[in-house]
Amino acid sequence: MAATPNPTPVEIFESGDSALRVVASSADTEANWSTVHSLAQWLETAGADGVHGAVPTYDSLLVEFDPGVTSARQVRAFVLLGLRQLEHVGAPARTPREFSVPVVYGGEYGPDLERVAEHEQLSVEEIIALHTAKSYVIRCLGAPAGSPMMDGPDFPLPVPRLKDPRLSVPAGAVAVAGRQAVIAPAVAPGGWCVIGQTPLTVLDAASEPLVPYLPGDLLRFRQIQPEEFADYAGRKLEAAR
């Protein structure tokens, strides 16, 4: 994660009696992301009684706490203290690792590929080419189960979510929505458009950490053919370097 000598200003919103939402709302999305992730790291390292932890995403941070021990008012003060600290010392830098993810696109592996192509007014091949064209920064770990949430491919239009979310999306599903991209580490319901599937095992509940990547790491998709799918079965997603 890049150092953040100057965190962006934030807004803090009440989110019930046990959480606050902190939003970095500058025009610089990179700085917003860096701010909320540095702040999450600071909150975790500093630690405060009754603060369970923080969930940073793109421009926002959910700080969860025990209202029996602390309060929204105290946690707000703690967050502001963290921001002042970051202004002075910045956040530690980390060298990103790179992950390469084989994907079978379309067909039973990616039931929404054609729908996405139609919506974008592109061919299926062009969608795949755009999806595999570059490395994505993993912005955060999301639902379900530590999904790597990434800035999406350079499609012309944002991808709408499904009107009727699926009750079950398989592990390894490679999906897009809005301007985001993701891999589903575990079977779960989902409203994103599934364009492909990776045969790799992303989540290993028997080991800590459960997923091999952290926010800030890089991930790149590459196309494989359906007949290659079985060759990868049982293999875990691992950093290339």
Partner: peptide, 17 residues
């Protein structure tokens, strides 16, 4: 407008459909 994914608290009330 599309909302970027963000942390949601336990107890959040949403209208997804």
């Amino acid at each position: 407008a599309e909302v970027l994914s963000r942390g949601v608290p336990v107890g959040a009330i949403e209208v997804p459909s």
